[in-house]
């Protein structure tokens, strides 16, 4: 009798798959975390420069004799802007850079799903940006004497987490789509960076844009996340766009849409790229 001896087929149990995924995620997050320690110039680019922008807006509000909490609105907007920039430059565009350095090929060859690599990029980016955002909030609040309500902390934490997960889900989706638009990455980045700062209401209430524009802007998780956080931190005085509960429900929907969208779009891009042979070409 003759049998064929094949290497034991890789029947990965869900637990093993999860373990491999988590290790992959931590592995990819590691260089991001190390950059905080080893590249201290981020303090200038990521904290001092954004703070100057925040200060400029606060001074405008002060000149207009706006209430003190408006300084808080601007500081919060400045802190969340750090997350948006991180999502754009260190998530969406990252796979493009990874391709140029040859890392993308190695990531694709690794046995864990590419989504775990994206999760590692998001996790590392989130942690370092959290640190940067915290410094902006603390320093800005101390300079301008802003105080916050702590009554709705659990709700605030929920909104914050949902906003970040949805935002980085959007970043993951953009990352895979950017692989299709190789040489146009810079142009796309520039094209969406500033308009998003405007339409999400980083420095003003989104309600000022009106219902339709506000609804359209809500596709960016920052819009509703920021509006909800401002309502919770400044219960009186913030001209809200929607009730917080509605905003939480919509954010939850965005989390699902962007995470599923990221998984689907990456699977599509990988399939298409394997057929066309473009995914791992460095220069095109």
């Amino acid at each position: 009798m003759t049998t064929t001896q094949v290497s034991p087929m890789f029947q990965q149990k869900p637990v093993e798959g999860l373990r491999l995924g988590l290790k992959t995620m931590l592995g990819r997050a590691y260089p991001r975390l190390m950059s905080v320690i080893r590249e201290p110039d981020w303090i200038l680019y990521e904290i001092i420069l954004p703070l100057l922008r925040v200060i400029a807006f606060v001074l405008v509000y002060k000149a207009l004799k706006a209430p003190t909490q408006y300084a808080g609105f601007v500081i919060l907007g400045g802190a969340l802007m750090a997350f948006w920039l991180n999502v754009l430059w260190m998530m969406a565009a990252q796979l493009h850079w990874e391709r140029l350095s040859g890392n993308l090929e190695l990531y694709l060859m690794a046995p864990a799903s590419m989504l775990w690599i994206l999760a590692g990029m998001a996790f590392g980016g989130m942690l370092i940006t959290l640190l940067r955002a915290a410094v902006i909030v603390v320093v800005g609040s101390l300079i301008f004497g802003v105080t916050y309500s702590t009554v709705f902390l659990p709700g605030l934490a929920l909104v914050f987490v949902l906003t970040l997960v949805a935002l980085y889900g959007l970043g993951s989706m953009l990352a895979s789509l950017y692989l299709l638009y190789n040489r146009q990455v810079w142009a796309i980045q520039e094209m969406i960076q500033e308009p998003v700062a405007l339409i999400t209401g980083l420095y003003f209430p989104i309600r000022a844009l009106g219902g339709y524009a506000g609804a359209a802007a809500s596709i960016i998780p920052l819009t509703l996340g920021m509006d909800a956080m401002r309502q919770l931190l400044f219960p009186r005085g913030w001209p809200s766009f929607l009730p917080v509960v509605w905003e939480i429900v919509i954010l939850l929907a965005l989390v699902v849409v962007f995470l599923v969208g990221a998984a689907k779009s990456f699977a599509y891009i990988e399939r298409r790229a394997k057929i066309e042979g473009r995914l791992t070409l460095k220069w095109q």
């Binding site: 290790k23 992959t24 592995g27 590691y30 260089p31 950059s35 080893r38 690794a110 046995p111 864990a112």
Partner: peptide
């Protein structure tokens, strides 16, 4: 480039569990 040689190798080992 920011990682040390050991860290870099460790990172890639993590991708394979």
């Amino acid at each position: 480039g920011i990682l040390t040689v050991r860290e870099q190798l460790w990172m890639f080992a993590q991708f394979y569990g």
